[in-house]
Each structure stands twice: as structure tokens, then as C-alpha cells.
Amino acid sequence: MSQTLTSSSQAVRTPAPARSPADRIAQWIPKLVLSPTLVIVVVFFYGFIFWTGLLSFTNSRMLPSYGLVGWDNYVRLFNNERWLVALGNLGIYAFLFIVICLVLGLLLAILLDQKIRAEGALRTIYLYPMALSFIVTGTVWKWMLNPQVGLEQFVQSLGWESFQFDWLVNPDFSIYTVVIAAVWQSSGFVMALFLAGLRGVDDSIIKAAQIDGASRFTIYTRIIIPSLRPVFFSAFIMLAHIAIKSFDLALALTGGGPGISSDLPAIFMYQLSFTRNQMGIGAASAMIMLLTVIAILVPYLYSELRVKKHD
């Protein structure tokens, strides 16, 4: 016992070896590597968000100026007819885009999950639109939907002279063409999400349900689709923020027109800030969009973090 004590006290007395310079550098490397990213994030994300927020309370026109005007810009924003149209359009667009993408994506995923041939090839085809930028999608659909050169003209040339599909130039329907193009672009991605979810369902659960007497339809509606709830949630979050940010697609497809009939908040924000010399109102509209995204993201992050803690 006494021997053990002696030896352990000896061990304590041994001084810790001095740190070599190389060790010290090795300790600093992670911090050094990460710091540029941190600076960029702080300055260009949070810094500019803060600056935009500040500008939304100033009388900035073409260039930033710092005469504080209180909530003036927000009041003028919500009295602006065009902003209200843009908000209304966003409501229609976001709702239809998200719902159709989810339904179509789920349907495609379920059909692809039936152990069919050439599934890999089909999956790639459905995913391809995702590889295009929204500008390209917008331009292509602009041609296809153009009554003079696109679908309408094509069907009429086949002999169906009275065929009409002029949504692109019809102020009542132009926003729906944006929905069509956006769905075309994003539903393949949603399908991939759902397909991954479906593949994660334990095969024996389906067998158990078969033995329990459930039909294929019941198995999907009562067991498989409900168990995909996390996938629904992730897909919804991604689609929602794509919808709120939507700018390039609508700009390339309709340019917000005819008139302001397919205007979206992002187009409104861009045009007021940079072409109409109304930077204050533009900044206010940007803040409203940011708050909308935050309103969707915060519950999502909250639930994600809570799940992690639960594990």
C-alpha cells in the first residue's frame, strides 16, 4: 500500500513535458482554418441583414442615407397596391407549388417504389430538372407557353384550331404558369426525398400488415405515408423557402407581368431597391420576407434540436 502511494506521488511530481511550438500550432490550426468562414458569415450574412434592417427605417432612396423615419417605410409598403398583389401572388404560388410538389413527388416515389425495371434511369430523369437553374427553366417554359410559338401554336397546327392556352399572357392566370414551371423543376427532388423515406420503411412491417389483412392501399394510407411524416416536414420546409425566395424563375418566365399580375415579393424588392430608387421601402419588404422565412424555420429548427436531445 505504502509502495503504491510512493509511486503515485512520484508520478504527480513528474513535471508535464513542455509544449513544443509544433504542438501549439497544431492546437491553433482548427481555429485558423475556421476563422475566415466565421468572418464571412458574420459580416456578409448577419452584418448585411442588420444593415438592411437599419435601412428599412431610413429615408434611403437611390443610395443609403441615414435619416431615420421610424415605421414610415413599412406603412407605405402595406399601402402599396403592387406589394399587396405580390403578397397575394406569393400566397397562391406558395400554396399550389408546395401542395402539388408534395402530392406529385409522393405519387412518383410510390410508383417508382414498386420494384420496376429501369428504376435508376427513371429516377435520374425525374431528378434532372433540379440540375437546371431557375433562369433556364423560366426561359424554356416561356417559349413553351408562348401562345405564338409554344404549346398553343403546336396543338393548333395539329388541327385543333380552337385550342387556347394563353395563361402566360393572361393577367388572371399568369401566376399559375410560374407554379407549373416551379413544380416541373422541384417535384423530382421531392420524389427523391420520399423515395429515400420509402426505402427506409422496414420490409417486415409491410409483411406484417399483409398478414393483418390490410390491402395495399390501406398499407400506404395508414402505415407507410404516416410514417413518412419527417420527410413531409423536411420537404415542406425546403419548398416553403424556395417559394418565398422565388425571384429568378418568375423574372425569366413572366417578368412579373403582364403588368404586375405575376409579381412576387422578391421581384418587388429588387425593383424598388435597385431600379425605382426606393431603397427604404425595398429594405422594408426584404425584412418582411426574412421574417416570413424565420417564422417557418424557427419551429423547424426547434423540433429538429429537440429530437436530437431526445436521442
Partner: peptide
């Protein structure tokens, strides 16, 4: 479903939802 059997699986295969 018409064989009137019941089965217990290795992975339990409980309906998670």
C-alpha cells in the same frame, strides 16, 4: 390475410406511427 395465421418478426415490425 385469408390463411388465418399470425406472425412475429425478428425486427418486431411494429407500425411506428
Amino acid at each position: 390475410k385469408n390463411r388465418d395465421i399470425a406472425m412475429v418478426f425478428q425486427s418486431y415490425a411494429l407500425y411506428p406511427n
